[in-house]
């Protein structure tokens, strides 16, 4: 995440227009910048890592890369925690670091204009407001735009060595 986009996210007129991949977590719809998405795949067996929080499912082999898988449903207490052939993993590429997130389902890719996007009121989502870029209304549904890079890099996700978290 660049300093500029960081600043705009915090300002009152965020410029977050662009293409978003939307997905469902429980009752809520979320959107993440399509440019941060590497691929979407099914849920494979993971290798459990000792002494980690429950939402870190473990690591998988993604064409030779060892990639951690995070179940956002567990992290945010949303949806039913089941793993079957319909379970979807979004593989993110965040500045070179590859992470997979488990969600309830992927809906669509949407191009959002600035006029679709509103500022974030308090307490609208299960995800802390500091990781929300804005809200968009699409077909009378509210879409929560997540700053996924910031969220995944946060200390609470426990994906980075604590020394590198800031």
């Amino acid at each position: 995440m660049t300093a500029t986009s960081m600043a705009t996210a915090a300002s009152t007129t965020p410029s977050v227009a662009g293409e978003y991949l939307t997905f469902v977590l429980g009752e809520e719809s979320y959107g993440i910048e399509i440019l941060k998405v590497q691929e979407i795949r099914g849920y494979d067996t993971v290798t459990k890592i000792a002494n980690t929080p429950a939402f870190i499912k473990g690591v998988v082999n993604l064409r030779g890369r060892i990639v951690p898988i995070v179940d956002l449903r567990i992290k945010f207490n949303l949806g039913k925690i089941e793993y079957d052939e319909f379970t979807v993993v979004i593989i993110l590429n965040l500045g070179g670091r590859v992470v997979g997130i488990v969600v309830d389902g992927v809906s669509d890719v949407m191009a959002l204009q600035q006029e679709h996007i509103r500022n974030v009121p308090e307490l609208v989502s299960s995800i802390d407001t500091q990781y929300i870029l804005g809200l968009a209304t699409v077909e009378e549904r509210m879409l929560i735009l997540v700053d996924i890079e910031r969220l995944m890099g946060s200390q609470e996700m426990e994906l980075l060595d604590s020394v590198t978290v800031h």
């Binding site: 993971v46 002494n51 473990g58 060892i66 990639v67 670091r97 060595d161």
Partner: peptide, 21 residues
Amino acid sequence: ETNYRRVRGISGATIMGDGSV
């Protein structure tokens, strides 16, 4: 650590013949 972080007691990972980690 390339995509994750250091884990105490673990020095690295490898991919087995069946593709699992």
